[in-house]
């Protein structure tokens, strides 16, 4: 081997090593959650999202076609099911009207705080979680449409997640199934508080439940509104499995079929969303309170 070849190989190896060191350090920089890196990433997403959308078009086309074929095949069965569901919904509507009236009366007695006014902004989901290491989704609405970091993202079925990064025209949503998503919730029938934690899989786990809590399979899990970032009463999921101390929750929203979502804009005034310290966000519950409705409770545990 010639000396020049040896030198070339040495140079290439040094470059390789430097590149490895550089990209390895990027991982730690990324975890530091620096503002500069976050905005660089969102600028990159703003630039590439239309291309991703374009590249995904064939997949979306095939998916629509498959769904169309499936719909036609199951039209008769679907009609029977919808009729039954319609009858059930009518009964539920009557019941809801009665409950709404009862709820209004109870609120006036308990002095509960009315939920903040939040404006829904509809956005199309451009991507879906493609890897096992992050459950985030890009939506085609951003700063220009008034989206802010911390805005809740919902569908008619329930909570999808939270906006974590905002670009000019696109925003990144951290889904409730992500390992970093921890949602303060209550059990609907017993009102016991807890926190749902994702694991980058299909289900969530319900943690930090009080010892007295006895969650039942099928019980609805709702956001508690604790901390003020998320509105109270948005369905997160239903208890799917209870085994000793482990409680599994199936998300209310079928996260695999997201096409359009609603971003709830506003209602987070006065909350420093860029510096959500864990101890502020998960304030211990006020023990003196006779109610477990947390909406309107500030970081100090006082009603606003």
């Amino acid at each position: 081997m010639r000396a020049s070849d040896k030198a070339k190989i040495r140079q290439r190896r040094i470059a390789h090593t430097l590149l490895v060191v550089f990209s390895f350090s990027l991982m730690f920089l990324g975890k530091l959650d620096l503002n500069a890196l976050r905005s660089a990433r969102m600028s990159m997403n703003d630039f590439t999202a239309p291309f991703v959308d374009l590249v995904s078009a064939p997949v979306r086309g095939v998916e629509t076609m498959v769904q169309g074929i499936r719909t036609v095949a199951s039209l008769r069965a679907e009609n029977v099911r919808l009729q039954a569901e319609n009858a059930l919904l009518k009964r539920w509507r009557r019941r809801a009207e009665i409950l709404e009236s009862e709820n209004r009366q109870l609120r006036s007695v308990a002095g509960a705080v009315t939920p903040d006014r939040r404006q829904p902004v509809t956005a199309r989901a451009v991507t879906a979680p493609g890897g096992a290491f992050a459950h985030t989704v890009l939506v085609a609405n951003g700063r220009e449409q008034g989206i802010e970091r911390g805005n809740p993202v919902v569908t008619a079925d329930g909570l999808v997640g939270l906006v974590v990064d905002v670009g000019a025209t696109y925003a990144r949503v951290l889904m409730i199934s992500d390992i970093n998503a921890q949602i303060p919730v209550i059990l609907s029938s017993s009102s016991w508080p807890g926190v749902t934690v994702g694991n980058n899989g299909t289900f969530l786990s319900l943690r930090f439940l009080p010892e007295e809590a006895a969650p039942k399979v099928g019980e609805l899990v709702l956001t508690s509104g604790h901390g003020g970032v998320l509105p109270a009463g948005v369905p997160v999921g239903r208890v799917d499995l209870v085994r000793d101390d482990f409680v599994r929750v199936r998300p209310a929203v079928d996260l695999r079929h997201l096409s359009y979502v609603s971003i709830l804009v506003g209602g987070t005034e006065g909350i420093d969303l860029d510096n959500l310290a864990l101890e502020d966000y998960y304030t211990p519950l006020p023990e003196t309170e006779g109610t477990r409705l947390f909406e309107g409770v500030n970081a100090a545990g006082e009603r606003q």
Partner: peptide, 16 residues
């Protein structure tokens, strides 16, 4: 990018 697009298929949700 196409990998990300494949995730829109429920089969490959979360694992393309």
């Amino acid at each position: 990018m196409f990998e990300g697009g494949l995730a829109l298929w429920p089969v490959f949700y979360g694992a393309t």
